[in-house]
Design a protein around this nucleic acid. Structure first.
Lengths: 240, 240
DNA sequence: GACGCGATGGCAACGGTGTTGGCGTAAGGC
DNA sequence: GCCTTACGCCAACACCGTTGCCATCGCGTC
């Protein structure tokens, strides 16, 4: 899975493309992310990626098994960027919070990529490294192995899940996004209190939350629960 | 957004297709879900859907604006099925838990559909109805409007987000799913303790959690936190 | 220094996708 | 009985991921 088509040893000999680019796996990934980041770019495709590199679509298959393989590589690159430069402070709760927010932000910076990639467990190097860090934080904080794994699982999947969900709406074509927004205004703001009293009573708050992610909120609630569990087991205090 | 192409009033006159089917919006949605549920079906496409109905691909556009519109209709149908037959018990915590699990399960029953649809805020009738119910549960339980909306937001988005994430891995083609599974076994089970001590120490628990969703766990943690907040505000007890 | 061979880039094609315009026809309304 | 209109169908378009095939370049070997 995700094995390179060509061994690294042979990668010495390179031929520049017709327009002078020297291709590499990393260059494909970087260019793909650049394409996906373009505001009104129509998304990633093998053909557009090849065009951006001034080469032929078929050339991609010299470096990746296919689109799926490229997708996994993009996901791992996002994870690398998410934790790049991060340093642990030793306070488990704020460390976890910071890590979660970083992953979330990294994916949101490339919404289209997130949608493509985040559902895959790639097992690539940077993802494994992140998993080791998170488990380390929890076990060092005093959680037992069973609890640590359970919280790790909930934490990681929650971060990825919100990243996918939030990225998915960002990744919508602008027309669809505007339509959704208008729908919210007209539907939820003007619902009669007779039929939908609770929505009508809270519509002001609902609209305020409309375009903001619920992830920080959900993350804090997860950490609340974890901290309470830790306090239950030990009589001691957790972090901060 | 999602407005029908043809007014309902005109829908009286129907002509059967060449193979005798009488088409309708509902029939398209049901057939699409049936296609998506097929174990080794290659997913949904306009052409396959048309073929399953014994009609022409272009006929779909008489009933929906396009694939995106059909997608929203499918999502709303999933929501309808999720809450069909549900009854409130009056205990807010177990009511919310039951609702969350139902939505999650409903989406997982049609993974491909979930991937397509759950990222869209459709604002269709069954989704609005579910929102009203959830807000009602929270406000009746004693949460203030601000807190109710915040918890509603986290609860709904978390349920959808996990549904998408979990469905996405279920929706993978069988080859990719088996590859991911093998990758877990070889990567996480046999990682040397020297380089990855925390993964190595907990690998038994990690593997055990591998194919199970973290959603129930995360849901309980969210409800934990909400209950603690409620207990903070009132001196009273919440539910159960 | 010439050769051979394998790695690489480019061309053309295949089967698939969502979508559109136009044509015939059958069903109501008047 | 006519006319309008909704509907099913055909053909075509542009795009997608993928795959043989061929030309060419670069390095190791003799």
């Amino acid at each position: 899975m995700g094995k390179r088509v060509v061994t690294e040893a042979k990668r010495q000999r390179r031929r520049p493309t017709r327009q002078g680019q020297v291709l590499s796996e990393q260059l494909f990934v970087d260019t793909a992310l650049r394409l996906l980041a373009q505001e009104d770019g129509q998304g990633l495709s093998v053909r557009r990626l090849a065009a951006a590199l001034g080469t032929d679509p078929s050339t991609l298959y010299r470096y990746f098994r296919g689109m799926d393989d490229l997708t996994l590589a993009i996901g791992d690159e996002l994870m690398r960027r998410a934790v790049a430069g991060w340093r642990a402070t030793g306070r488990w709760r704020s460390d976890l919070r910071e890590l979660g927010l970083r992953v979330h932000a990294s994916y949101l910076a490339h919404p289209q990529a997130a949608v493509l990639t985040a559902s895959r467990v790639s097992g690539r190097i940077h993802e494994v490294a992140a998993d080791e860090v998170i488990l380390g934080i929890l076990r060092t904080a005093g959680f037992g192995d069973r609890d640590a794994v359970r919280i790790y699982h909930a934490f990681v999947d929650q971060s990825l899940a919100f990243a996918v969900l939030d990225a998915a709406s960002l990744a919508l074509p602008r027309t669809a996004r505007e339509a959704d927004e208008a729908m919210w205004q007209t539907t939820y703001a003007r619902l009669p209190a007779a039929t939908h009293p609770h929505i009508a009573a809270t519509s002001r708050h609902l609209i305020a939350h409309m375009n903001t992610s619920a992830y920080p909120s959900a993350l804090d609630m997860l950490l609340d629960s974890a901290q309470a569990q830790l306090a239950d087991v030990q009589g001691a205090v957790g972090d901060q």
